[in-house]
Design a protein around this nucleic acid. Structure first.
Lengths: 338, 338
DNA sequence: TTGTAGGCGTTATCAA
DNA sequence: TTGATAACGCCTACAA
């Protein structure tokens, strides 16, 4: 049995489709008696309006397209959770599409959204601005998350990666560390670049030597960096990785090699994934759920014409200090344990 | 500037809209020359078909509604990742909707899908079958994930929680543990109930005493259970929690209290969240991504009429043994360390 | 091979 | 207050 349409309801209530539409949408130019007849008929038939037809007629889908890169674990789920919360609160549905590293595929994903969503939320820290600008349908309002330089007409939300990195270096310095190595994120990734910048700036400010090891945001890169550090003759008393996973890999590798953390080498990460808490890893907390929620709010405001502040927004990071960066002076002879 | 429509393309290519439709959809009754003209015009205008209109006329949205409960972290993201992979491979988009514990809200979420999706993927281990059956639009093909008893006409995919739990108890017994306590999941949750069943069955099979402590899948419940175990006079040499988070809470609480794991008390969980690996927690691996992917495949087969096997499917669990359940005989004097 | 026209389910305009 | 009817953008008989 096919679903009931508005015409079925009209027939059963013995009114016109126009009246059904008006009654069900709560317009006031309907006699109370008529409205009741309509509602009764609709209930009896289990009528649910066809959202596709509705959006065609209204030119409004009440849906938001979400295009995310290959995020991992908590990061992905927290982001979507934040978005979903705000979206469902305001009566919007989320249409999901993963954009893998391939930018052709990204374009396909974006086109598929045409005619199903009112706006787009795009997170693409790995795609060049021109490519991105080219791929997003020009007529679709959209909010960029954590992406490269601002695109004309599209507000952007991002974390202050730079300030976060600086805060971590400041913290390490305050705790007595002087030879801080940075493990970088992947080439071309905006977050990674900004974190490295912050690290360099803070080192310069403190007149400390800077040393950057390559990385790719994966645990293995952290392990490799640890080996590099242990093998190298350059003195190192702290490692600041561009994300938690690399910090965790580094932490494991250091400890496996018999190095005391933080007594001999301190370790810090970035993101505050749940694992960080368990491993007592100092890090920079990134409230991704809030970013998701804000992005949705921003987009819906844009769609409904109540966008007051056109400017892009930068969310402040939060320093989370734990055991892996404990003050150096508290462990003057840490190495003796080795 | 509004998006170009098929009419704009037709005008520019100097053909009828019908020819544009035919040319763009790859029908063969179009002259090559005409097709070229159309494609050229479409490219020049940046034409992208309006999916809403398309689905209205085709009665096919090429989208799948996904209704999930409040899943956490990795669990949620892996599930969606698996679904997205298979869906995008087959040209479908995912429409997401979180169904919180409230079953009214669930009904609303489900109705909102009408007319935007071709089918539904529903995971609702916490909602009673009748409620669920009532809430799902009868005309919408759907696949149930990890839900209560089969609903007529809707295939179900689920993990063999029972077999998983039995496998873990068998493993504990094989490793020399005899007083195994189970920390249960929330009341009314299907996964929780099946895991408890498996635990009880295995205990009975081994003629071992069974003892179940209440829990709710959260870390704190594991901590509370640990306190209970330590305070109680009932001998206990192993704890098997209904999920990893409770096992982790229990593990921490035991160790904080100076109890050696596994020397004095072994600990096991269920799910194999990423944290489990880091904490060397033995557990039952649940390949949620594959379940998501299979569910999508199943649903699309159903939609496209090539559903061969109507029966429900049960996915086998995998035992992952790690340090927290190491053989008892290997640590005869573990307690001496305390 | 092409074009005309009707329909998908809904809302909105305009008379009545 | 109500009802007929024309959109919305697309696909697809049916005719030419």
């Amino acid at each position: 049995m096919a679903e009931a349409t508005i015409r079925d309801v009209a027939r059963r209530a013995e009114v016109s489709v126009a009246s059904v539409s008006r009654a069900l949408n709560g317009l006031d130019n309907v006699r109370a008696e008529t409205r009741e007849k309509v509602i009764k008929a609709a209930n009896e038939l289990g009528y649910v309006p066809h959202a596709g037809a509705r959006s065609l007629s209204l030119a409004r889908a009440h849906a938001i397209g979400v295009v995310l890169p290959d995020l991992h674990g908590e990061f992905f789920s927290e982001c979507v959770r934040g978005m979903d919360k705000e979206a469902s609160r305001r009566g919007y549905l989320l249409l999901l599409s993963n954009m893998h590293d391939d930018s052709d595929q990204a374009a396909v994903a974006l086109r598929a959204m045409r005619g199903r969503v009112d706006g787009l939320l795009v997170m693409a820290p790995h795609i060049a601005p021109e490519t991105l600008e080219h791929a997003i349908p020009p007529a679709l309002p959209s909010v960029m998350l954590n992406s490269h330089a601002d695109l004309p007409g599209r507000p952007a939300l991002r974390f202050d990666n730079r300030a976060g990195a600086e805060a971590m270096v400041d913290h390490l310095v305050a705790n007595g560390y002087r030879h801080i190595v940075h493990i970088a994120g992947p080439e071309g990734n905006l977050d990674a670049a900004q974190r490295a910048d912050g690290y360099l700036a803070a080192c310069a400010r403190h007149a400390l030597p800077a040393r950057i090891l390559p990385g790719d945001f994966n645990e293995e890169a952290g392990e490799a960096a640890a080996r590099e550090i242990l093998a190298s003759s350059t003195p190192t008393d702290a490692v600041f990785a561009a994300n938690d996973m690399m910090a965790i890999g580094c932490l494991h590798a250091l400890r496996s090699a018999g190095t005391q953390v933080p007594e001999q080498i301190a370790v810090a990460g970035f993101d505050d994934v749940p694992l960080a808490r368990y491993l007592s890893l100092s890090t920079i907390r990134v409230n991704i759920a809030e970013m998701g929620a804000r992005a949705v709010a921003r987009l819906i405001d844009l769609l409904e014409g109540k966008d007051l502040t056109r400017a892009s927004e930068t969310l402040p990071p939060e320093l989370v200090t734990r055991a892996t960066t404990a003050p150096r002076t508290a462990h003057p002879n840490g190495a003796a344990h080795a």
